[in-house]
Amino acid sequence: MVTKLYTLKRTGILDYVLVRVSAIYQALYFSVITFYWLLHYPLNYGQLNGFFDILAIKISTVLVAMSISYHSLQGIHHIETDYLTEPRIGKIALPARRILTIYSYIQVAGILICGFLLVI
């Protein structure tokens, strides 16, 4: 089992599957949220506050924050290894990739904090 998981990780199949799984989860979450908010369209503070008091919504909001962070880290990694390469933009590629990676980690931390702040 451990070797199997390790092989999946080394070949990138685990990343491939997890990106799709997190995408499906986010699609479901945002479909439900959009449907709910369209039903209660001119929404006010009480509704918004009460919405994030429902336990199921709390759990799924934290989960969606985690899944957005994973998905965006993977996506930014794909984009930067495709476009910010030395043949394309020259010597600046490596520092540009590093800056973008650090920025994406900061941003992901922000998204996770927002997710936790929404539910407490």
Partner: peptide
């Protein structure tokens, strides 16, 4: 669109947190 979402999602989730945490924030 992925890059656009990446740049814009955090500011708007901050606004959502602001709106859902207190009446003045809303």
């Amino acid at each position: 669109s992925a890059v656009g979402i990446f740049l814009l999602l955090l500011p708007f989730s901050m606004i959502l947190v602001l709106a859902s945490n207190s009446e003045e924030g809303y």
